[in-house]
């Protein structure tokens, strides 16, 4: 049987999470290869439809990495996103999709290691859950 290679889509903001990503690069820490990164100006711009479309197009896991709740450059973008993620998790459950396939993380700009850790955490969870379809 062929080994399951999860498809993972990660949205990350161009502020805190982007800095964390740069630092992880400088530390020679690399993300698992099956993670597709999508940079957004602010996580508050990510709408429910963007997250759903990732699942519709075959992503096994979708996660968002944004700022700490008190350090969003656009005041409350990450909080708006967290509300949407909570809403969508409830919706996914009703649709028969495990809500753990969707997560959101708040990172400090300097935490390059954490940027890689959350990616590995999602990869491990994806392998536990198996393919979405």
């Amino acid at each position: 049987m062929q080994e399951f290679k999860p498809k993972i889509v990660a949205f990350y903001c161009s502020n805190c999470a982007s800095s964390a990503a740069s630092i992880s690069n400088k530390l020679n820490l690399f993300l698992p290869e099956n993670i597709k990164l999508i940079n957004v100006p602010c996580t508050g711009r990510i709408e429910i439809l963007h997250l759903l479309k990732a699942f519709e197009n075959g992503a096994d896991m979708v996660y968002v990495v944004g700022c700490q709740e008190d350090s969003c450059q656009y005041i409350n973008g990450i909080l708006k996103l967290k509300n949407r993620v909570a809403y969508l998790k409830n919706m996914l459950e009703q649709m028969g999709i495990e809500p753990q396939r969707l997560e959101v993380f708040s990172l400090y700009a300097g935490k390059g290691q954490d940027f890689v850790n959350v990616a590995n955490e999602m990869l491990t969870k994806a392998k536990e859950l198996g393919p979405i379809y």
Binding site: E47, I48, L49, L52, K53, F55, E56, M91, M95, G96, I97, I132, Y133
Partner: peptide, 18 residues
Amino acid sequence: KEVAILASAIRIAKKKKG
């Protein structure tokens, strides 16, 4: 926007059921 969300959710849920 809500039409697109519901349509996407229906596609996902139906696909999940094969």
